[in-house]
């Protein structure tokens, strides 16, 4: 016997939870329906194989490849920056640092993730690029390198924090076994702890990749808006996200094919991040089963 008031409240609470499902359905519906009408005009083959992306020009091409390489390039630079630093921090904090040091530094590092991305974009454009131009003279004022590096700094705490959690969760006996054999902390960390926590560390990197792929403002400000098929980090590039921003800022009429391109670009982005996120869940789940 439950009284009706209680039932109504439970229903209202469950409805709030349902909103999140409606959000997901809404995202999928919006992306699928708009890109469906896009793909009625542009063939999927052209979309995936054409090497030019010029929907806003008179000579129109709809090949997503330049946006993909731009996205790939900035993401790769960001991960190559954040991964070694992030893992080194994680190992240092869990294996070397005094306990109270660890407790106060972890939240301090989170500050890096709290800074709005538009601010990082400004930083990349006005500080990092001029600095890099001293070293690489032919670096353009918009380039993938600077945007990628700054994005890397932004995602350091993502990798360091999750990797540190994974290392910290290891049983103490594991390390003691290694120390007992006369191993140094460095050897224990990299021969025992890091391999044992590898799934957690891999999850942190995958999530960081997903974050970097979806990052918008840094690349929109500092990487330029030229969809060029290139892997040279000194070039200006355009990512999927930066393209969506570019179209949104212009006055492309609603319902036009150019308008629909942002949804086609959006669904590409969504599929990438969705797959990456689910790989990370899958690894996490497998890993938890192993330890339980």
């Amino acid at each position: 016997m439950k009284n009706t008031g209680e039932k109504i409240i439970e229903g209202a609470l469950a409805f709030s939870g349902l909103i999140t499902i409606l959000t997901t359905l809404g995202i999928i519906w919006v992306l699928v329906s708009e890109s469906f009408s896009f793909f009625q005009v542009v063939s999927v083959t052209d979309f995936l194989t054409d090497t030019e992306w010029t929907p806003l020009f008179t000579q129109k091409h709809y090949g997503i490849l330049p946006l993909l390489t731009g996205t790939f390039l900035t993401t790769a630079i960001a991960i190559l920056t954040a991964m070694p630093i992030g893992i080194a921090i994680a190992v240092y904090l869990s294996e070397y640092a005094p306990k109270n040091f660890r407790k106060s530094l972890k939240p301090a590092l989170e500050v890096l993730a709290a800074v709005p991305t538009v601010v990082y974009g400004f930083f990349a454009l006005t500080v990092v690029t001029p600095f890099l131009q001293n070293i690489i003279p032919d670096l353009g004022s918009f380039n993938a390198l600077s945007a990628g590096l700054v994005m890397g700094i932004m995602i350091i705490p993502m990798i360091s924090s999750l990797s540190e959690d994974a290392l910290h969760a290891l049983p103490k006996s594991l390390r003691e076994a290694s120390y007992g054999m006369g191993a140094t902390r460095f050897q224990t960390a990299f021969k025992v702890a890091v391999p044992a926590a590898s799934s957690g560390i891999i999850v942190s990197i995958i999530l960081a990749v997903a974050r970097a792929i979806g990052e918008t403002m840094i690349v929109a400000i500092a990487a330029g808006q030229q969809p060029i098929l290139t892997l040279d980090p000194r070039d200006a590039v355009e990512t999927i996200t930066a393209y969506i921003v570019q179209v949104s800022l212009g006055d492309v009429p609603h319902g036009s094919l150019a308008y629909k391109t942002i949804f086609a670009a959006g669904i590409t982005l969504f599929i990438f991040t969705f797959v990456l996120n689910n790989i990370s869940f899958w690894i996490k789940k497998k890993y938890q089963e192993k330890y339980d």
């Binding site: 997901t24 918008t216 991040t273």
Partner: peptide, 13 residues
């Protein structure tokens, strides 16, 4: 899953 969706996608929504 939603927590991992890029913010710009929410813009499209």
């Amino acid at each position: 899953n939603l927590a991992g969706v890029p913010s710009i996608i929410y813009g499209l929504l």
